[in-house]
Design a protein around this nucleic acid. Structure first.
Lengths: 140, 140
DNA sequence: ATAAACTATAAAGCGCACTTCAAAGCAAGA
DNA sequence: TCTTGCTTTGAAGTGCGCTTTATAGTTTAT
């Protein structure tokens, strides 16, 4: 059993964020002691980690909420959850693809800068020319 | 030369977003015709595409602004820009790493669901158990 | 007895990246 | 002339994901 503060330390979230998640029904209602203080179980911590994983994938709070709702309803919602997870995967793949594209372009930019730092040009390049230069293969 | 509407169509942004970028100095001041309407040049469009690339990498407006400011100042800011681009690359790599991690876990989840859909369990699993099951290798 | 440390709640606030609104102007076509 | 369509501006509004604030309660140490 962990206090609010401990749960926050373990997960790296703030106590406020944990309460926010609970209010938004991303977490089940956390047990309280007779002082009405929250007592997070190991299962709660696992649960929080799952939410962190989903947040890491930029899944919106609302979608997590829907998923959690199905999960709590149990076995008969399995197919719906299966479909949601498939969509999440597609979404993550899309994000990765975008980032890869941006990474490639940004690396070209870096290479371009490295080249100029080594062999300085004796003439300034306009902003758009610079962009074109690495975006279209080094020719203005 | 493109009207506001055309520039919006070409880039996929809204005219409002284009004005917002201009106000925030992500774009240089766009030329106007004698009706005071904006006239986007091909260079402006290229410029916008660069911003879109940076936004795709989740680079905040403020950072783009700083980068653009250096770019407009020209050649003597090359090293600063070089460093910024390096940081952007590290940042993008970090984002990709996070997404890869989330993707792996989510794929495990999908595999877990597929298995259960084929060979149904005759007992419900609790939420945290389900998570543990795929997160820790299939054992509760 | 008092202060320090932890907790609780509801409500308001915040930073970001836009979007929407309201009021106005110009220009071409019916 | 009047409507339609495009544009302008500043200001206010929106949605998200929390954070901060204000107020209050309990327990432990000094």
């Amino acid at each position: 059993m962990y206090s609010a503060k401990e749960a926050a330390e373990i997960t790296g979230l703030s106590t406020a964020a944990l309460r926010y998640y609970e209010n938004e029904s991303l977490l089940p209602p956390i047990k309280r002691n007779d002082q009405r203080y929250r007592q997070y179980t190991d299962e709660d911590i696992e649960w929080i980690r799952m939410i962190q994983c989903m947040r890491m994938a930029n899944i919106p709070i609302q979608s997590i909420k829907e998923y959690v709702s199905l999960l709590i309803q149990g076995g008969k919602t399995l197919e719906q959850r299966y479909e949601m997870v498939q969509e999440h995967i597609e979404n993550i793949r899309g994000q990765i693809a975008n980032l890869q594209k941006a990474l490639t372009l940004t690396q070209s930019k870096l290479a371009f800068y490295e080249k100029i730092l080594k062999e300085p040009l004796h003439q300034d390049i306009t902003y758009a020319e610079e962009w074109k230069m690495f975006n279209h293969g080094g020719h203005v």
